[in-house]
Simulated assay, not measured.
Amino acid sequence: MTESRPTFKRRQLARLLRRLREQARLSIEEAAPLLHFSTAKLSRIERAVNGVDVHAVKSMLDLYGVPGDQWPEIIDMAVRARERGWRHAYGLNDKGYVSMEAEASAVYEYQLGYVPGLLQTEEYARAVIASYRLQRRSRQDVDNQIAVRMRRQARLRDNPPLELQALIDESVLHRPIGGTTLMRTQLAHLVEMSELSNVTLRVLASSTSPHEGLEGSFIVLRFADPKDPDVVFIDHPAGGLHLEKEAQVTACMLTFDHLCSRALGPAESVALLRQVIREL
């Protein structure tokens, strides 16, 4: 069964196979019959719409004249592209995000509505998920989503750790999700997480004049391999939007950087968090 959204690994393999074909100076129309594929099938493979087995990948490497010393790495990539991510054990519809985040080396997240998932306590996460009235979930579904969120957070303490640049609108700190006690615990958790060397937390003060961030939240994912382009993810009620065009990603990163320049610095942000905790 194919996934509703190609995994990051499958998309990474698809980009590589297309690049190798182009380097061999073969068009899809020329390469497909030599591989005993239809042009439509080869096109779907290169767009990650369809997966591809290891035997077909070997045929491609042979046809494209790829040196033998490069084969093991590419074949290993093909094997991994067919693996189902750990999140599937939870039956999670993650809108194609979790598999990308799992491969990312850095996350740049701007949140207008709530604490970023990587920084949520279990109780806060449960309260947020319970507020999604448009999506009916069983208790097991909610428990699974919480388990996935907690597992994602473990990467912040891995070696090497996931880098997180989190920018939060001040309104998030005052939104009473789950009650006063829960919010106090969540804000204290933000203070604790901000002490990690790989986590940078900034708060965009409510007194800031109108800015681009009012248009909505977004996440930019960056990967360790410079050949893998940054990806923008935008969550919305009907699904998730993935943007990969360079101009789109650049626009989002420029917006993120601009918002950071207008936000409180990390130390000032923590001071504000402590103040809000005292006032709760």
Results as ranks from 00 to 15, higher is better:
residue 1 M to W: 02
residue 2 T to V: 06
residue 2 T to K: 03
residue 10 R to K: 13
residue 10 R to N: 11
residue 16 L to P: 00
residue 18 R to C: 03
residue 22 E to V: 03
residue 28 I to C: 06
residue 30 E to Y: 05
residue 30 E to W: 05
residue 31 A to D: 01
residue 33 P to Y: 09
residue 35 L to N: 01
residue 35 L to W: 01
residue 35 L to I: 12
residue 37 F to M: 14
residue 41 K to A: 05
residue 42 L to G: 01
residue 42 L to V: 06
residue 46 E to Q: 13
residue 47 R to S: 14
residue 50 N to W: 04
residue 50 N to E: 09
residue 53 D to V: 09
residue 65 G to Y: 04
residue 66 V to K: 02
residue 76 D to Q: 15
residue 80 R to C: 11
residue 81 A to E: 08
residue 81 A to C: 13
residue 82 R to N: 15
residue 83 E to H: 11
residue 84 R to L: 15
residue 91 G to K: 09
residue 91 G to Q: 07
residue 92 L to S: 08
residue 93 N to A: 15
residue 95 K to D: 11
residue 98 V to I: 15
residue 100 M to E: 02
residue 101 E to T: 05
residue 102 A to H: 08
residue 105 S to T: 09
residue 106 A to V: 07
residue 109 E to T: 14
residue 111 Q to V: 07
residue 115 V to E: 00
residue 119 L to Q: 02
residue 120 Q to V: 06
residue 124 Y to G: 01
residue 135 Q to I: 14
residue 137 R to K: 12
residue 147 A to Y: 14
residue 148 V to G: 02
residue 153 Q to L: 10
residue 156 L to I: 08
residue 157 R to M: 11
residue 158 D to S: 14
residue 163 E to Q: 12
residue 165 Q to V: 07
residue 168 I to Q: 00
residue 170 E to M: 12
residue 173 L to V: 13
residue 173 L to K: 06
residue 173 L to C: 13
residue 174 H to E: 07
residue 175 R to V: 07
residue 176 P to G: 08
residue 176 P to E: 10
residue 179 G to L: 14
residue 181 T to K: 14
residue 183 M to A: 03
residue 183 M to R: 03
residue 191 V to E: 06
residue 191 V to Y: 02
residue 191 V to P: 00
residue 192 E to M: 10
residue 193 M to F: 05
residue 199 V to F: 07
residue 202 R to S: 05
residue 208 T to H: 09
residue 208 T to E: 12
residue 209 S to C: 11
residue 210 P to N: 04
residue 212 E to F: 12
residue 216 G to N: 11
residue 216 G to E: 09
residue 218 F to E: 05
residue 223 F to S: 01
residue 227 K to D: 15
residue 227 K to R: 13
residue 228 D to R: 09
residue 231 V to Q: 04
residue 231 V to F: 03
residue 234 I to M: 08
residue 234 I to H: 01
residue 234 I to P: 00
residue 235 D to F: 02
residue 236 H to R: 13
residue 239 G to D: 04
residue 241 L to Y: 06
residue 243 L to Y: 06
residue 245 K to A: 09
residue 245 K to S: 08
residue 249 V to A: 04
residue 251 A to W: 01
residue 251 A to Y: 01
residue 254 L to P: 03
residue 254 L to V: 13
residue 255 T to K: 10
residue 255 T to S: 15
residue 256 F to A: 10
residue 258 H to S: 14
residue 263 A to W: 05
residue 264 L to A: 04
residue 266 P to E: 04
residue 268 E to I: 12
residue 268 E to V: 11
residue 270 V to Y: 02
residue 273 L to Q: 04
residue 274 R to E: 12
residue 275 Q to S: 10
residue 275 Q to A: 05
residue 276 V to R: 10
residue 277 I to D: 00
residue 277 I to L: 05
